[in-house]
Amino acid sequence: MTQKFDEIPELPKGSFERITLDAKQAERITKPSVSFWQDAWYRIRKNKGALFSLILFGLIVIMSFLGPVISPYEPNAQTITHANLPPKVPGIENLGILNGVGTLGGEKVDLYELKNVEVNYWFGTDGLGRDMFSRVWKGTQVSLFIAFVAAAIDMLIGVIYGGVSGYFGGRVDDFMQRIVEILTGIPNLVVVILFILIMDPGILAIIIALTITGWTGMSRVVRGQVLKYKSQEFVLAARTLGASDSRIIWKHLMPNVLGVIIINTMFTIPSAIFFEAFLSFIGLGLQAPDASLGTLINDGYALIQFAPHILAFPAILLSLIMIAFNLIGDGLRDALDPKMKD
């Protein structure tokens, strides 16, 4: 044995009195337990990307309402003489950016001077002389509206369908799942385009097209979770106590399934934003003068060579929203992960 023995220390009298601790105290000394949601919130706060995205997204939402109001111009008001003006922001024009300089016939000139424009357009103007600042924020508002409504409908249908299918199981589940299997077999793109074609173009048409099969993803994850939880003890206990089906679903299953619903929705929203923009870009979206980020990008693209700013602002905003949502979604998924692992 080479076990090291320290010198046996001299100790003050009374050191060797026996003391009693009860086990409860021992429990208390160990790490305090935190609830699942507290824990999740703690983790999402630690995720800088997600937190930053949340703030950024909040700002974008606020601006989408505030922007059209604080701009002196209506989103659809045309001032033909002010067409295709590059952005000009007073205060930073000396920095060499956003100074109203654009190219005309291959040369760089201050178009505001040239066209005798006294006022400033922060994001410039489009081909019809409309203020891009108010148009972009208004478009953001519309895009977000479409995405949120579509995501909400997806969520509603998906949760109900998946919940019922998983909860009742058996024949009902079999039948409902066959339908979902066929629906998911149809490419989303095809469904969306076909539905858009038969409806009057507009916000409603886009929302319907996006949700017509969009809910299947949500229904699948909800069904999976319900199947997992419904046979667990607390649910069985509630059932033996005579709780009704709807009570069991809402009071007992829902809270446990909430995590996946939130995460799934966080990924549905950017996907809806994308599809709306996509449809608008190929000409199946909103009709003029209504604008969404997608139609603005489409308009801007036509003038990319001469007035790139018309494309730049909506494109940047769209990208920012998409990035923010993906980061928030990732963050939420990581934060809620322990429950999703199975």
Binding site: Q3, F5, D6, E7, P9, S15, R18, T20, L21
Partner: peptide
């Protein structure tokens, strides 16, 4: 271990015991 032990001594709370042969 003292916190979980019914044989805890006062010294257990203060000083790490050395190895006794």
């Amino acid at each position: 271990f003292a916190l979980r032990s019914e044989y805890a001594l006062k010294i257990d709370m203060e000083q790490n015991p050395p190895f006794f042969k």
